[in-house]
Nucleic acid binder design. Structure first.
Lengths: 340, 340
DNA sequence: GATTCGAATGTAAGCGCTTACACTAACCTC
DNA sequence: GAGGTTAGTGTAAGCGCTTACATTCGAATC
């Protein structure tokens, strides 16, 4: 067992079972087309030799791999973890395998990863967000690789998306904040360049201000990568301004948790001295004290639906419709109601 | 650009450039063997046609993919995130690509993933932990796929490992706990079946008790999957016993954070009413209040060294030595010194 | 100027698999 | 029982690439 010198091929199995390679292939891929007796013989040869199909060859000949690729911006924090896990579970249940790569929020790397995944035979791709170089969409179309953009809802994009409306969601949260009497709003946003979700959230925030007769240009905004530490630093910067914000709204929960720590380091208490809000409702938001007011996103549902939709596209059952999921404002202790 | 009907092949490029396929192939793989003038001609044909090599074919013919596969038990929490990120960064810097799959802590799924990754042409594999069916190691050996086991240090295993000694590390932490005067120790462990790290940590805990003349069998142990919620539930169970533990030691930080919340829900304050310890020192451990006493693990260093070692193995430079990293006890507020 | 040599390129044989098509029996149908 | 089906299997043509080996040709050598 432990000194196999060489890997068995279809040919070896065929020879061992006394049939043609075609029959072996059929046994593996469409067993119902082979009579039971033959199949048994073949299968025991497969077993005996410890045969496993060579994937490269298979891909080349059949052009199907039952592999789905996903490229997420980061693995470092949990933003995508839950959704991706659900995505993977659903894929697994349907006989597909998931391959993940991460792009570190860099479009160039993402492109590399897309090509790499396609080259490795991915039948379909899950990408996060929607904005990217049109050339990459052409590339995928030329190869008939279905792509689904998740974490965004963007019905008119021409690309299927599954997710929620980042802009509306943030607007709703901001409306709540304003209804609570906050007028001095500070913002810690993710980097908006090359990140349509971050940009949409920021835009939603501005929408809310405008709708309430506030001046969006007067609002201090710090853009910084999604890392806890950055949130802490940014909060301290915001609190050093002449007119201190009464609330700091963050582009996601990671930044919000950082902001919370930043406040604590400054000796400020939340929400008494300053309120903080997040976005995503990842586990972190409920672990810290005070728990963070945020926008709840149905991560698992999104992952599951993405898997179903993408497989439909791959198997040519679906045309790749856009699916909208509903997010909800999740009120918790980190946001103070100033009207009380 | 957007209506390419078909994907260009090597042949197309060769025809366009007026050279043979061999020359095109050489341009791509060992440019120094082609004279400059020809190379330029070929390259502009490549550019013009938007050619990208077909991976399946390449794998089949060359048997090299510059792809490394990694299988981690879970993506849901951050235990492996940081290390994996560093692993990926190092791979990327050296021209390799990372493909990740997750096994949900199930050996059967892990085996599937291993086969899938190998089939997809992975040049090498990073696995977490060391214990698994010997047949799978045979399978990999037969295909000459180097494997590196990470997150463990296990010099006599015959397999290269890069990581730290889970048993010793936990023993050191437990020693500290005992030195602080704790005698009633409750334990929330990960599931030890099929998880050598969890088992080793628990064993290390027992070692410390024995070394200090305490009875390890008297120690209440709850095994539960690594999820925050489970930590909370387990803590409540432990605190309902007749003799309440003065400290609850957890198999990792995720459980510890859960335990912390469980304590809070019970109206207990940490560390006054009960101390809590974790393991791994993920970001979470410093975010919660009180911050958690834990075992610090050099995640990024581990990821980076794993990448270097694995590439060495793939490129036949290294024999796959075992690399030990040092963990350190990280004292924080969640552990109370009873001797003061 | 004939010979040698080596660098640049071409030729063609696989790599391991799938599948269209061809073939062979066995079984119906009238 | 001739002709027509049909189910089961075999034959062989690729899939797109790499690379050992063959060929060519200009420069160097004597």
């Amino acid at each position: 067992m432990s000194d196999l010198r060489t890997v068995p091929t279809l040919d070896d199995v065929a020879r061992a079972a006394g049939v043609s390679t075609a029959t072996v292939s059929r046994c593996l891929n469409s067993p119902e087309r082979v009579v039971e007796q033959t199949r048994k013989r073949v299968m025991s040869a497969v077993e005996a030799l410890g045969y496993t199909p060579n994937f490269g060859a298979r891909v080349m000949a059949a052009k199907r791999t039952f592999t789905i690729g996903a490229i997420i911006p980061t693995m470092e924090n949990a933003i995508f973890a839950r959704g991706l896990q659900a995505f993977q579970e659903e894929l697994h249940a349907r006989g597909y395998m998931l391959l993940v790569a991460s792009s570190a929020y860099q479009p160039k790397i993402e492109e590399d990863q897309i090509r790499a995944l396609v080259a490795r035979g991915a039948d379909g791709l899950l990408l996060i967000g929607h904005d990217r170089d049109p050339a990459i969409y052409d590339y995928l179309r030329a190869r008939s690789i279905p792509v689904l953009s998740a974490w965004v809802y963007f019905p008119d994009s021409g690309q299927p998306t599954v997710g929620f409306d980042n802009r509306q969601s943030m607007r709703a949260l901001a409306q709540q904040v304003i209804d609570y009497g906050h007028r001095q709003i500070g913002v810690i946003s993710g980097i908006t360049k090359g990140n349509d979700r971050a940009a949409a959230r920021l835009a939603g925030l501005r929408d809310a201000l405008v709708a309430n007769g506030l001046d969006p240009d007067a609002m201090p905004v710090i853009e910084t990568p999604y890392e806890i530490e950055n949130g802490a630093v940014a909060l301290q910067t915001l609190m050093q301004a002449d007119t201190r914000p009464t609330v700091v709204m963050c582009g996601n929960d990671v930044l919000a948790v950082g902001a919370l720590r930043g406040a604590r380091d400054l000796g400020l208490s939340v929400p008494e001295d300053v309120s903080i809000t997040g976005f995503d409702d990842i586990e972190l938001a409920r672990i810290v004290a005070p728990q963070i007011t945020t926008v709840h996103v149905p991560h698992r549902e999104m992952g599951r639906k993405a898997a179903i939709a993408l497989i439909d596209m791959v198997e040519k059952r679906g045309t790749g419709d856009t699916i909208e999921l509903k997010s909800t404002v999740q009120l918790r202790d980190s946001l103070r109601d100033l009207t009380c």
